[in-house]
Simulated scan of single mutants.
Amino acid sequence: MEILKAIILGIVQGITEWLPISSTGHMILFDQFLHLAGSKKFVDTFLVVIQFGSILAVLILYFNKLNPFSKSKSPRQKKATWDLWFKVLIAVLPSGIIGILFEKKIDEIFFKPVVVAMALVVYGIIMIWLESRDKEPKIKKFSDLSYKTAFMIGMFQVLALVPGTSRSGSTIIGATLIGTSRFIAAEFSFFLAIPTMFGASALKLLKAGFAFTGFEWFIMLIGSLTAFVVSIVVIKFLMAYIKKHDFKAFGIYRIILGIIVFAYFTLLA
């Protein structure tokens, strides 16, 4: 039963981490029906460790694009790859600094079902509004993405510290609002996830320690592998989807999910 729970949670992680629909909103609902056996420390660590599976999926899918040491790349292409990494690191700074300083306080204030529901609905409305504008994107390739723009996208990622907003949702909305294409917004969001999620996950894992049983480590491995496989599929799906569609469907889904979260915790729970 615990293995099945780990697989289900890995699937939820793999899907909701990359689609702009809020992993927190889904985890809050699934937590009402799925309860991993073990201490709170183990459960919290499990939810952190499975994120490494999602990060690995991005690294593998975009290995060549993100590898500045590739022998197949020309000096100009290597320089462009380093430039992309520096833009990612610049964009990560705001959420990294504010997250380290205030994440615990933010969670204490905002980690409530009503706040999560409101964030889901509000961001869903914004997403639909953005896609309703008839505006041609100014930034269609990474070479057009300036350091200033990258930093501004990073400022939008700070909003993801509020549960329910979605890290990918915040960065995609921010990037689109600034003027990037959907393709650039989505890919840059993926790349931002590497240092953001790795840093946050590693920090939480170090704080939690490593004193778990063999079976608990096995459960974390199952969840991570599931998140990895599902992330591969979902990332490929999203990049193919946005070539022909916009983000309105995700906005509508967020609104529906927000209403469900609000209704469940105010009327049923």
Rank of each mutant, 00 (worst) to 15 (best):
L161I: 10
I100P: 00
I15F: 13
I232Q: 12
V233W: 13
D107A: 03
I106L: 15
F247G: 03
Q157Y: 08
P75I: 12
K79V: 09
L56R: 01
I97S: 11
L9K: 09
A175C: 07
A202R: 02
P94W: 09
F142A: 13
S143E: 15
V162H: 08
S72C: 06
M1Y: 08
T24C: 06
G38Y: 01
E17K: 01
F142E: 09
F190R: 03
F142L: 11
L101R: 05
L29M: 13
G223V: 04
S143W: 02
K79S: 11
R167Y: 03
L205W: 11
I139C: 03
L59E: 07
I242Y: 02
F52W: 12
N67S: 13
G258N: 05
F151G: 03
V158P: 08
L225R: 09
F142Y: 06
K148A: 05
D144E: 15
G199R: 14
T171C: 06
Q13P: 05
K236L: 14
L120G: 09
Y62G: 07
I184T: 03
I11K: 06
K141P: 00
I128D: 05
T213H: 14
E187S: 07
G179F: 12
A91V: 10
K141I: 00
M220F: 11
S168V: 04
M152K: 11
F191N: 06
V88I: 15
S231Q: 01
S166I: 11
V48D: 05
F151E: 02
A57H: 05
Q13T: 10
I178M: 00
I184Y: 03
S23W: 06
L59N: 08
L101G: 02
S146M: 10
S166G: 06
R182F: 00
I21G: 06
A193D: 11
L9E: 08
L203N: 07
T176V: 14
E216R: 09
Y264W: 14
T180D: 00
I3R: 08
F30S: 10
A150W: 07
I222W: 02
L177Y: 15
K78E: 07
S54Q: 01
I252G: 08
F183L: 14
G179L: 03
I259A: 15
E131Y: 01
V114E: 15
K71W: 02
